[in-house]
Design a protein around this nucleic acid. Structure first.
Lengths: 187, 187
DNA sequence: CGCGCGATTGAGTAATTTCAAATCTAGTGG
DNA sequence: CCACTAGATTTGAAATTACTCAATCGCGCG
């Protein structure tokens, strides 16, 4: 649990033991069962989550009631409704377990404390924010330039394990096509 | 020029005069004419750009030769092929002027210098990276949940000036529909 | 065994694309 | 100032693609 977080951070910046215990003391560990919600649309967003193990989906429900998957979050991912988290507003997304999941929770207060007290952590979060931005932009390009079949292949290539872990229905919600169309891509 | 950058940064963190002159000394100013390229696919990406005035489009050309607009960059925006910039690899996107444009250029070296020498600047870039991430995620949601008409309305609402500044052809490339379909949305 | 969930298949419908042509507009040079 | 041209916009019609709705199939689990 601790080691998971530590080695994750140390892929970017090296830490002393003291530094890490300070850091770790600002997180709280929680467990969730499959189908449980970490965040529900309309509610306050207390935490950003570091996924130690398991699998989450970040979803958004549109006006017509259809839900779409914005992203999956697996081991070593950070996830939250970040707009709501940073601006302390109500969630417009939900975060829900696709598997039993262990997370480490970081409140905004503690996030800011980490950033201001430890230059290293600010630099770590900067790196993560940049990767997050780049990842999202890649997804935009994918949605603009590639048809469903291509996007499916890209997803499969990037996260081969997803396909044993979630039903195709969920993949369709991520890819932006109906499950029927997704199914027909293989015939 | 300077004032533009300074007030932009000071929306996030306050600076002393000394701090700002250090910061500004790490930028170089450049001008580009309409249709000129700041970045071309396949070439090295030397700079991230702060747009002082004018308008840019960040584009990507897919395998079939169609180009798509990933984002527009107007006054006060930061833009680059960030994956290529941060990883020092060849560009997979182009950055081109839709109007005559003034920018301030920041090399990766100087970006890193700013981050390590001035805590404030790291904190500024963290804030920017987070907004960039959130903005991209909003775009993903928009692409997944909303049809072309809806996306057009959202764009119009967010950047009313765009519509006097760029032809609808370009908007279609951004929205992910053919210009014919976009045209038909209004009849 | 029966239930529930997921996957597949079919048929009809709706939306979007593509290709083509006509029209309109702004900027250029004479 | 006008004629010309390149780019932008609109419109039409056919073809493609994806969606919806419905029914069926298959599998694992209680």
């Amino acid at each position: 649990m601790q080691e998971k977080l530590r080695s994750h951070i140390e892929e970017v910046v090296l830490l002393t033991n003291d530094e890490f215990s300070l850091i770790y003391s600002l997180f709280t560990a929680k467990q969730f069962k499959k189908k449980e919600f970490l965040i529900q649309e309309g509610e306050k967003v207390k935490y950003a989550y570091f996924v130690v193990s398991g699998l989450l989906k970040l979803t958004h429900t549109d006006d017509s009631g259809k839900t779409h998957i914005i992203s999956f979050a697996m081991e070593d991912w950070w996830e939250s409704d970040f707009p709501a988290y940073f601006n302390q507003t109500k969630a417009t997304m939900s975060l829900q377990c696709l598997e039993d999941t262990n997370v480490l929770c970081l409140s905004l207060e503690n996030y800011q404390k980490l950033c201001s007290d430890l230059q290293k952590m600010q630099s770590f979060f900067l790196k993560k924010a940049n990767s997050g931005f780049i990842g999202s932009q890649k997804r935009i390009i994918s949605l603009l330039t590639t048809n469903a079949k291509g996007r499916y292949d890209q997803l499969l290539k990037q996260y081969p394990t997803l396909f044993q872990r979630v039903p195709k229905t969920q993949l369709a919600l991520y890819l932006g096509v109906s499950r029927e169309t997704l199914s027909r891509l293989f015939s």
